[in-house]
Amino acid sequence: MSEQSSTQLSRPVRIGVQVQPQQADYAQIRRAVAAAEEAGADLVLNWDHFFPLYGDPDGKHFECWTMLGAWAEATTRVEIGALVSCNSYRNPDLLADMARTVDHISDGRLLLGIGAGWFQRDYDEYGYEFGTAGSRIGDLAEAMPRIEARWARLVPAPVRDIPVMIGGGGEKKTLPLVARHADIWHSFGDAETLRRKAGLLDGYCREIGRDPREVERSVGVEGDPADVGDALLGAGATLFTVNAGGPGYDLGPLRDWLAWRDDHRG
């Protein structure tokens, strides 16, 4: 059995949905989150931007972390988090405290999704320095130990060891960060891309003496799970996340993936 197969088989298949906080009123977002939880989603996620990414660029949009605090009260079972929070927008110690607080509000259901950031309009309009892709990844590398150290000092401590999801596929800088700091690696692409990059991640884990199986493999998905799901599962993914956009929040694709999940859980 390959190591990737071992990673796959050691974890249950999980399905997440990213409820995009754009082009909708908050009441519509809240209903979509409730419906996703009722449908059986394992995770409900938003994103960390200040303007819509799709549709009207100046349309309705809401902030990530204040929304997660509300979701923590409005849900009871699903894990919640951002896919992903932008490291550039908050002091790392503050972000750690925010995550710890939402973790308590949710009774231990928060995961900290985090990435280096990329959407230049957010930076320009809110007064952050955009820098370069390399400088932003460097900032993330400096932030992760600070987040971990702050969690260790906070009173009260987080309810659980908050899972860290790092998003990105950079092979020379991002994947080594994943190996060192992440519980979940989130990526995009087809099965062959996932398999190749997962192999690189495995190598980075071994270099620092970490078991690669400790890092869950997550992938954003579109389309019919009957067409793409098994190949991605075979490449090592066990967490699959679909998108739902406002204002309608069609959860049909989520339900298709949940049915596929249930078939693969036996």
Score class of each variant (00 low, 15 high):
Q8K: 12
D93Y: 06
G113H: 01
A35Y: 01
P145V: 06
E171W: 00
Q23W: 03
L112S: 05
D97R: 15
W71M: 15
Q4D: 07
C205E: 13
L112W: 02
D230L: 10
G108M: 03
S218P: 02
Y89N: 00
E222L: 14
Q22R: 11
R11I: 03
T101S: 15
V221P: 05
V155H: 03
V44K: 01
S218C: 09
I166C: 10
S10A: 15
A231S: 07
A34L: 15
V78L: 12
I15L: 12
E63K: 00
D256N: 10
R180Q: 13
G199H: 02
D93I: 04
R109Q: 08
Y126P: 07
T76C: 07
D183L: 05
D256F: 02
S85L: 06
L239P: 04
R100P: 01
Y26M: 14
I184K: 02
S5G: 04
L112F: 03
A237H: 09
D190H: 01
Q18L: 10
L9W: 08
P253W: 00
L200D: 00
G134N: 08
T238H: 06
W65I: 09
I105V: 12
G223S: 08
G220Q: 10
S5Y: 00
P225H: 08
C205R: 09
K197L: 14
L194V: 15
V242W: 00
L110E: 04
Q8E: 14
G248L: 00
D97A: 15
V215M: 08
G189K: 14
P176S: 06
S187P: 00
A27Q: 11
H181I: 06
L254S: 04
S135R: 12
G81R: 09
I114N: 11
G168W: 07
P12N: 04
R14D: 00
S187V: 09
L177V: 13
Q28K: 14
F51I: 05
P247L: 14
W260D: 01
L177T: 10
I15R: 08
E207Y: 00
G266I: 07
M165S: 13
T174Y: 11
D230R: 11
S135E: 14
D230C: 06
E148Q: 05
R121V: 14
L201R: 13
L258K: 03
V78I: 13
I15P: 08
P52S: 14
F62A: 13
T174F: 11
A191C: 02
E171S: 11
I80Y: 02
R31M: 05
T241P: 01
D227T: 08
W71K: 04
S218L: 02
L68Q: 08
T101H: 02
G117P: 08
A179T: 09
H186P: 03
